[in-house]
Simulated assay, not measured.
Amino acid sequence: MIDNNKSIKDTYMSNETIENINNQVQMKEVMFNQTPGRYALKSVMSGFLLAIVTVFMLGIKTQFAGTNEGLINLMAAISFSLALVLIVLTHSELLTSNFMYLTVGWYYKIIGMNKAFGIMLVCFLFNIIGGLILFGLMKFTPIMTTEMVNSLIKMVDGKTVGATWYAILVKAIFCNFFINIGIYVSIQFKDGLSRAFFIACGVVVFVFMGYEHVVFNAGLYSGMIFYDFDAVAWLHVLKNIVFAFIGNYIGGGIFVGLVYAYLNGRRDSLSN
Rank of each mutant, 00 (worst) to 15 (best):
Lys171Asn: 14
Gly247Met: 03
Tyr211Gln: 07
Ala40Asn: 06
Glu16Lys: 10
Val149Ala: 09
Ala172Thr: 08
Ala116Phe: 01
Val161Tyr: 14
Lys239Trp: 12
Val214Glu: 07
Phe99Pro: 04
Phe229Ser: 10
Val215Asp: 13
Lys239Ser: 15
Thr103Arg: 03
Lys6Asn: 14
Met144Glu: 09
Val204Phe: 05
Tyr39His: 10
Leu137His: 06
Asn248Gln: 03
Thr141Gly: 11
Ile250Cys: 01
Gln34Val: 13
Ile254Arg: 00
Val88Gly: 03
Val88Glu: 01
Lys115Met: 02
Ile143Gly: 02
Ala218Val: 02
Asp228Met: 05
Gln24Met: 13
Trp106Ile: 10
Ile187Ala: 03
Leu169Gln: 09
Met113Arg: 00
Leu134Ser: 11
Asn15Ile: 11
Phe140Leu: 11
Gly257Ser: 03
Leu84Arg: 07
Thr141Ile: 08
Tyr107Ser: 08
Thr145Ile: 07
Tyr184Cys: 06
Asn98Cys: 08
Glu93Trp: 01
Val149Asp: 01
Thr11Trp: 10
Phe99Asp: 11
Ile181Asp: 05
Gly66Asp: 08
Ile60Tyr: 06
Ser271Trp: 00
Leu58Val: 05
Asn4Lys: 14
Ala77His: 01
Leu121Gly: 06
Lys61Ala: 13
Ile2Asn: 15
Val44Ser: 11
Ile18Asp: 05
Gly158Thr: 12
Pro142Arg: 00
Met100Glu: 02
Arg267Gly: 03
Gly253Asp: 03
Ile168Ala: 07
Lys109Trp: 04
Met45Lys: 04
Phe32Gly: 04
Ile199Lys: 07
Asn15Glu: 09
Ala172Pro: 01
Phe208Arg: 02
